[in-house]
Design a protein around this nucleic acid. Structure first.
Length: 480
RNA sequence: GCCAGAGUAGCUCAGGGGUUAGAGCACUCGUUUCAUAAGCGAGCCGCCGUGAGUUCGAAUCUCACCUCUGGCACCA
């Protein structure tokens, strides 16, 4: 039994959360729920608020930056209820625990931090640096200016060989393999030191001060990545970081910062390294990237209102291979809802419960033979294997295999024709036993549905019972 | 341009040197009534990206080519 720290990326708060944010939180939630069955788990998420973008967005909105980031952070926090997330901590990078923590870490890493001139192409309107290939600002189409300023840098180059070795040997495991290869190539191409501060002026005074240098603000990565540590109290750091496994769940766009920069920083601090970095894909909508310009951004709150929490979780978890991109469409969503949730699971639950009532089997003692239990166990083992490997969609498929197995079993036994009570009890013992298992397997994916099924069957696992009945997933077309 | 990965049924994908290539969804037919126009059974649909090679035998290995996706540093 080992302790586990499960983290998500912390989100930028310059807008409301979209479906992509929901996806990542749900993945992390499933994994955390799975781990909780055997481990002590600290599940952490949060918002990244020290960005210059926020200052500008707040100016535009005519509110103070503090007010602006708080308002948006709260929107992200609303995802907890909307998606039924089980995280036990939410950190905002403007919180004191984070500010103090980052400064403390900065001091601890001091030996690998130095000052040097940073030269880059800068767009005055964006107030941002751009790559050397684009000579013009991609947004304003204006000439970029070459600007030079003095900043702090982190000696990443010093750790190149060490990081390469760690990743090659999977001491820090990057999932999936393809991402690991990308990172290895990136490291082999040579690591440069990276900039970890901006002048306070350029940062418009927003952000965390560099210790003993109020003219500089700590910039992006040294700030944001540190949240995984600054969120933890001393006791929890001990319990979950030092004596536990750290698992980061992040988008494919920020693998490098976790697998290279962060590992470098941790090496400088001489801290324990994360065990796994799991990267998920992105969501397209009807085959296109989500973007405001073509206004196809999907609002997760909307989907929850329309279809419910579990159906939304279900779609994202079953339709997408965890580490690959996936496509969202209302048509696919509803198709899956009907095929798997209504006709599949919902219908099975419904037919079992109704027959128990009609055949008056409530209160009978459950008797299940060993070979049937073994049969069920095979499904459970496969299900667990896929969960451990972050193959959530595969894991769900195993549950549906089991559901089809039960439907076939019912067909074969034709319990509606059976009159012998003893035989009926035997049949429904198995069905109730298996249905409970299905509910328990579902609880990481569809916690609400899982609870409902268990509550229908009653608390006493040794008796056949129906406490109440309710349609789990009504067909959608009946409501327009 | 360079480096990865992928191209298999209408859709999403699994498989992977050897009997007639798989699953789910969709579709067609049959069947059942316990159940949410649900269930079960059967069927349909594939030159397994293209060309060549290795082999007794390739979708599976090798090479070339085509197409797509991703990565190629300061971007959560």
């Amino acid at each position: 039994m080992k302790n586990k720290l499960v983290t998500t990326a912390i989100d930028y708060v310059n807008g409301a959360p979209h479906l992509g944010h929901a996806l990542e939180k749900i993945y992390a939630d499933v994994y955390a729920r799975h781990l909780r069955k055997k481990h002590a788990v600290y599940f952490l998420t949060g918002t990244d608020e020290n960005s210059l973008k926020n200052v500008r967005a707040a100016e535009k909105a005519g509110v103070s930056t503090e007010e602006f980031v708080l308002k948006n952070s709260l929107k992200f926090q609303e995802l907890k209820t909307a998606l039924n997330l089980s995280y036990n901590d939410f950190i905002r990078t403007t919180e004191e625990r984070h500010v103090k923590g980052v400064q403390k870490l900065w001091k601890l890493a001091k030996k690998d931090i130095y000052k040097k001139n940073y030269k880059g192409l800068y767009c005055v309107s964006c107030e941002e640096y751009y790559k050397e290939d684009d000579l013009k600002c991609p947004i304003h189409k204006t000439e970029l200016e070459e600007i030079e300023e003095e900043n702090y840098f982190f000696k990443l180059s010093k750790y190149q060989d060490k990081i390469l070795d760690l990743i090659e040997k999977d001491e820090v495991q990057i999932i999936p393999q393809a991402r690991k290869n990308e990172i290895l190539n990136f490291i082999k191409s040579g690591l440069q030191d990276f900039c970890i501060s901006r002048t306070s002026e350029r940062a418009k005074g927003w952000g965390i001060d560099v210790p003993n240098d109020p003219n500089q603000k700590i910039w992006v990565w040294f700030d944001a990545l540190a949240n995984y540590m600054t969120a933890l109290s001393k006791e929890d750091f001990d319990k979950f970081w030092i004596n536990g496994d750290v698992i980061h769940i992040i988008g494919k766009d920020i693998v490098r910062f976790h697998a290279v920069y962060f590992i470098g920083i941790l090496l400088a601090l001489n801290f324990k390294l994360p065990k796994k970095i799991v990267t998920h894909g992105f969501i397209t909508v009807d085959g296109e990237k989500m973007s405001k310009t073509i206004s196809n951004v999907i609002d997760p709150f909307d989907l929850v209102l329309r279809y419910g929490r579990d159906p939304l979780r279900y779609f994202l978890l079953s339709e997408f291979k965890t580490t690959a991109d996936g496509d969202f469409s209302y048509e696919k969503f509803e198709k899956k809802y009907h095929a798997d949730l209504s006709s599949g699971l919902g219908n099975l639950v419904s037919r079992i419960l109704t027959m128990i009532e009609k055949k008056d089997l409530k209160g009978s003692t459950i008797v299940v033979d060993f070979s049937f239990k073994e049969e069920i166990k095979k499904y459970v083992l496969k299900y667990e294997k896929h969960l451990n490997d972050f193959e959530f969609n595969e894991s769900i498929n195993i549950i549906w295999e089991m559901q089809r197995f039960l439907d076939k079993y019912i067909e074969e036994k034709k319990p509606w024709e059976v009159t012998d009570r003893k035989e009926l009890v035997l049949i429904f013992s198995k069905l109730v036993y298996a249905l409970r298992k299905i509910a328990l397997m579902l609880d990481v994916f569809l916690p609400e549905t899982s609870e409902k099924i268990l509550s229908f069957l009653g608390e006493d696992e040794s008796k056949i019972d129906v406490i109440k009945k309710e349609m789990l997933f009504p067909r959608l077309n009946e409501y327009g």
